[in-house]
Every structure is written in C-alpha cells, then in structure tokens.
Design a binder for these strands. Structure first.
Lengths: 148, 148
DNA sequence: ATTTATGCAAAACTTTTGCATGGGA
DNA sequence: TCCCATGCAAAAGTTTTGCATAAAT
C-alpha cells in the first residue's frame, strides 16, 4: 500500500543499514502521521514485530531525529516529548496549553526567513518547527466562566 | 538587582501563590536566560535554597509551561527537554543537529500569521516557538571532508 | 482561618549501557 | 566476509505520588 518512503532513501543515502528495527519504527511513524510518544511507538512496534527490542526503538528515534526525519515536541506534558514526522521538512501547529488539544496548519511563509538565516549564519537549514501556544476557543469560554 | 519580574505578576494574576519554591525556580530560569535542563534547574535551586524539594521544582516547571512563561524544547537529546523563557511571548533559534550548538535570533515576522490564526481558529495565542534545524557552518565542513 | 502548596522518600517509569551475536551490504 | 546494528536484561536516571505539615493569602 505505502509507496516506498523517501525516508528510506534518506537512511540509505546517509549510509545507514535498512534494518528490521529501523524500518518497523519508520512504519509506525508513517502510519501515525501525527504526534506520538515513545511509549506508543514502543507498543506499536511490539505489535508489528515483537522481535524488535526496546533499545533499538530508542536508537532509531534518536537517529531519525538527527537526520531531521522526525522532531520531538512537547504537547501533553512539559516532560515527555511526542515525535512528529517532518513532512517536507517542516511542521506547524497551535497548542492549547489548557486542554493540550492541538491544531495543525500548513502555510507558514517562512521561506524568506529561511534563506536569510542560511546566508547570515552559514547554516545549511534542513527544516523547521513552528509552534504557537495559547488557549483554544473552548477553553477560553471556561476561563471566562471561572472569572465571572 | 533584578526588577520585579512581570512573570511574578502573571503568577499572581492567575491566582497562584508566590511560594518560595516557585520564586526560586523562577529566579533560576531568569538568571539563566537561555536553555536549561530540569537537572540543571534542580541543581541550581538546591544551591540557592536547599529547603526546596525536587517535586516542587517539577511542579513549578509544569505550571510555568502551562502559563506560557517557559517552553520545553528539544536541543541536545531527543529525549530530555531544555526549558527556555518565553521573553515577550516568543523564542527563535537555529539548532545544529550534528553538534547541538544553537543560535538565537530575534525578528521572525510572524505577526500577520499570528493574527490570522487567532481569527481563523478562535484561539487566544499567547506566544510561539520557532525552531530551525540543520547543519552549522563548521559541521558542514566536517561533512564535506568525510565525503571527500 | 483557610486552603493551597510543600517537602519527603518511596514507587513507578523511562532510557541507556555493555556485550555477545545476528543480519545487511 | 565484514562490521554495523541488534536484542537482551540490568543499571542508571528521572518523574511522580501520597500524605502529613507548613506557609501564603
């Protein structure tokens, strides 16, 4: 079903082996297409391929992060990250700090800034994560009621 | 020396008590003015006021995150967050995924997008975190040499 | 006076490591 | 064949909890 992932290409190109462990973790991340905690990755990998060990899952998450394939973000807890696939090298969302609900959006208009930073700092930019936080419509109502 | 923090005002306004634990954690965060891990916060709080317990430090970090005073971010490990003060409600940096060095910058030009999102989603936006990642100038050299 | 928040210390998790072995290239 | 990456299981950390008590308002 799934087309051969461009991420498998990234792995190969960077000289890493396409092992069962890495491919299974990648599959889980791609099927999720959203934010997922390490605990959930662990559980789903276990379900798909019980032969894969915990340690390899963490090693894969670390590697994918380094390669810019995923990015850890903090949504539900200020302590436990959730990982998100960096589709096309970027990701954007708005988080409600009250209920932890989040909303994703696409256009960020950061192309000019990206080019500018590359030129100024000499950094080869691979992607970005843009996160807005605040209080969502429903929670705003809650806050107002509490103040009344 | 330090002027009375506007963050102390936020705490008060939100109805939270100004306790030793919270004020000490806030002091550490303000003195740092950068990225700091929970372990470092713990150590510095211990140095300033040994009477403050570990648990209260974590509780304060969680609370400050909820209030938008700080924000957890990923820098050095895909697992441990570092907390950063959201000065004026926003923060921006570029991280090198190779050496973990990071560069902060100020102007992001996100005012229009912020207004747009508030209108579209009905969210009361308090701030944002913008993170670029890639390979810094020095690490780019390293990569080239490896490929030669 | 009232609570809210705390400190303590143990419990509960999560993540990392070291090393012999298996599986990709 | 070669050696990178793995699985295992124990160790090392980190965070959370439950509860009696202290300290803000």
């Amino acid at each position: 079903m799934t087309a051969i992932s461009p991420r498998i290409e990234s792995l190969k190109r960077a000289g890493y082996r396409l092992t069962q462990a890495r491919l299974t973790v990648l599959q889980v991340l791609e099927e999720e297409r959203g934010h997922i905690t390490s605990a959930d990755v662990l559980a789903k990998v276990e379900g798909i391929n019980p032969a894969v060990g915990r340690a390899s899952v963490f090693r894969a998450l670390e590697l994918f992060t380094q390669l810019g394939i995923i990015r850890p973000t903090y949504i539900s807890s200020s302590v436990t990250p959730t990982y998100v696939l960096m589709q096309g090298g970027h990701h954007h969302h708005v988080i409600c700090t009250e209920c932890k609900r989040f909303f994703e959006f696409d256009n960020c208009g950061l192309e000019a800034l990206t080019a500018n930073l590359q030129a100024t700092l000499g950094v080869q930019i691979k992607g970005h994560l843009l996160e807005f936080y605040g209080v969502c419509a429903e929670c705003c109502v809650g806050v107002e009621e509490r103040q009344t």
